[in-house]
Amino acid sequence: MKSRALTIARHEARLMRTQPWIVVILIVIPGLLLAFFANGIVGGAARAVPGVAALFGFFGLSAIGLAFFRDHGWMTWDRLRVSRARPIAVIFGKLTPLAMVFLAQYLLLFPLSWAAFGLQIRGSVLGVALVSVALVSVELGIGLLLAVVCTSIAQLNTLVSVGALLLVGGAGALAPIETFPGWLQAIAPVSPVYWSFKGFYAAIGEGGSLNDVLGPIAVLFGMAAVCFVLSGVFYKHEQRKTFFA
Rank of each mutant, 00 (worst) to 15 (best):
I88A: 13
I88F: 11
I88Y: 06
I88G: 11
A89G: 13
A89T: 13
A89Q: 14
V90K: 02
I91F: 01
I91A: 03
F92C: 09
F92A: 15
G93M: 08
G93C: 02
K94T: 01
K94G: 02
K94E: 07
L95M: 12
L95K: 00
L95F: 05
T96N: 01
T96E: 01
T96V: 08
T96A: 10
T96K: 00
P97N: 09
P97R: 04
P97F: 01
P97T: 05
L98G: 01
L98V: 09
A99S: 02
A99T: 06
A99V: 04
M100S: 09
M100F: 03
V101A: 03
V101C: 00
V101R: 00
V101E: 01
V101W: 00
F102Q: 05
F102I: 04
F102S: 03
L103M: 15
L103I: 10
A104L: 14
A104E: 00
A104Q: 05
Q105L: 10
Q105V: 05
Q105R: 09
Y106P: 01
Y106H: 15
Y106N: 09
L107K: 03
L107Y: 02
L108T: 12
L108H: 12
L109I: 15
L109C: 14
L109Q: 12
F110I: 14
P111G: 03
P111V: 07
L112A: 15
L112R: 13
L112I: 14
S113D: 09
S113K: 04
S113C: 12
S113F: 01
S113Q: 02
A115F: 12
A115M: 14
A116L: 15
A116K: 12
A116N: 11
F117S: 03
F117M: 04
F117C: 01
F117H: 14
G118C: 12
G118K: 09
G118W: 00
L119V: 12
Q120K: 14
Q120P: 00
Q120G: 01
Q120A: 15
I121G: 10
I121A: 10
R122V: 08
R122Q: 15
G123F: 15
G123K: 13
S124M: 12
V125R: 14
L126C: 13
L126F: 08
G127N: 13
G127D: 11
V128M: 13
A129V: 15
A129K: 04
L130G: 14
L130N: 10
L130H: 11
V131Y: 07
V131P: 07
V131A: 12
S132P: 10
V133E: 07
V133I: 14
A134P: 12
A134I: 13
L135W: 09
L135C: 03
V136T: 13
V136H: 01
S137A: 15
S137H: 04
S137G: 09
S137C: 09
S137L: 12
S137Q: 10
S137V: 06
V138N: 02
V138A: 03
E139V: 11
E139H: 06
E139P: 00
E139A: 07
E139D: 01
E139Y: 06
E139T: 08
L140T: 08
L140Q: 04
L140P: 02
L140E: 06
L140G: 02
G141P: 07
G141I: 07
G141M: 04
I142W: 09
I142L: 11
G143Q: 03
G143Y: 00
G143V: 04
G143A: 05
L144H: 04
L144M: 10
L144V: 10
L144N: 03
L144F: 07
